[in-house]
Design a protein around this nucleic acid. Structure first.
Lengths: 193, 193
DNA sequence: CCCTTACTTGAACATTTGTTCAAATAGTTT
DNA sequence: AAACTATTTGAACAAATGTTCAAGTAAGGG
């Protein structure tokens, strides 16, 4: 009998790599050397398992965002966070993508409960970015005239866009260049809303 | 017998709405009131159909990018292009996402031929953005010291990020705000590569 | 009117998938 | 060791999906 976390970690890895639909219960069973019943004795079904995976994944992202917000050197920490999240060795290439966004692309096949968890996780992630934006303003690093919600959403836009770029990037320097640009633009002018 | 374009347009719509895997051949047959054989007499299978859809879709995006690049007023045209692509009424919400990116999230289930078409389409799209960047530099609207490839890729990053934001946005003004920010940042400082 | 060609039909097949369940096994308590 | 509970096993089911194909229908030329 596996530790619950081992099981969830492996499931997360598979869903992350291949997406929700493309990952079959048999894939998970095989990866963990489990028989169907053993899996279904711990989770009601694929939907619930995926829901748990989403929550687990979102918690990790959120923790990293909060940790970044609490850091001393705001820009440095923000840049580091982006770099840590986006620069991965080739064998972990799949982690440059976002499990939540991948899931979103297949949300039409998600059952209600998983779809709801996904929406909730996305909202949580946005809250994390808004918290980071507020922290940067607190330190007077960026203009206080813009609503933190705006800056936070902008950060998330950059995050999403960069994930796709990182997925296709050949070398790390390309990605780091755009992270530098991001830090500059954080400090550049913000339109009047 | 349907016009080939009617058929491809409807298939595009379905794939765009629901993604590759979630769209079954039966869905397409039903939407066009066709029987299996009729569909298979025009396309070898789902893979080839999707390949045609991808090429068709990429051509449209590329055409819009090239048209934008040729426009007189560079920034205005660029902003308009983003607005046209991202601001859609609720019933066309699915068009705020990118068919290519959706497909990418499920690429593990794509057959070689479709995966190759997808990769090719993505590269084409990037070329379109780079062309737009070069055109903006030609008009001396942005710094000529940065390689067009960098600016082009940056534009694509913004495009991808904004698509996701637009998909979740409640009102159009939110999206337009970030497009304004984008135009500002185009003109702000670029890091030394 | 017939013959040939092209297209359509609708049933069927093979495979994959999520899921269930009675029987067997392992683990724990008395 | 026996009795009881919890977990695992492996076969099986039902539904969905991509695809095929022989038979039927329509179209057009001679």
């Amino acid at each position: 009998m596996y530790e619950p976390n081992t099981l969830l970690d492996k499931a997360t890895e598979l869903f992350w790599q291949k997406g929700y639909q493309a990952t079959s219960m048999r894939d998970i069973q095989q990866a963990l050397d489990l028989r169907p019943g053993s899996l279904y004795s711990r989770f009601q079904g694929k939907s619930e398992l995926f829901e748990k995976v989403i929550v687990h994944y979102a918690e990790q992202i959120l923790a990293r965002l909060e940790q970044t917000a609490q850091s001393e050197d705001g820009f440095e920490a923000t840049g580091d966070m982006f770099r840590q999240e986006l620069i991965k060795p080739a064998e972990l290439r799949y982690q440059r993508q976002c499990l939540l966004l991948n899931a979103l692309a297949q949300s039409s096949k998600l059952e209600d409960r998983a779809a709801q968890a996904l929406e909730h996780a996305m909202a949580k992630m946005l809250q994390g970015f808004i918290g980071l934006a507020a922290a940067l303003q607190e330190k007077s690093l960026i203009s206080g005239e813009v609503a933190p919600a705006q800056v936070g959403q902008w950060l998330q836009i950059q995050f999403v866009g960069l994930r796709n770029a990182a997925y296709f990037a050949n070398d790390d320097e390309q990605v780091m260049y755009f992270i530098d640009k991001l830090i500059i633009d954080l400090q550049s002018e913000w339109p009047a809303s």
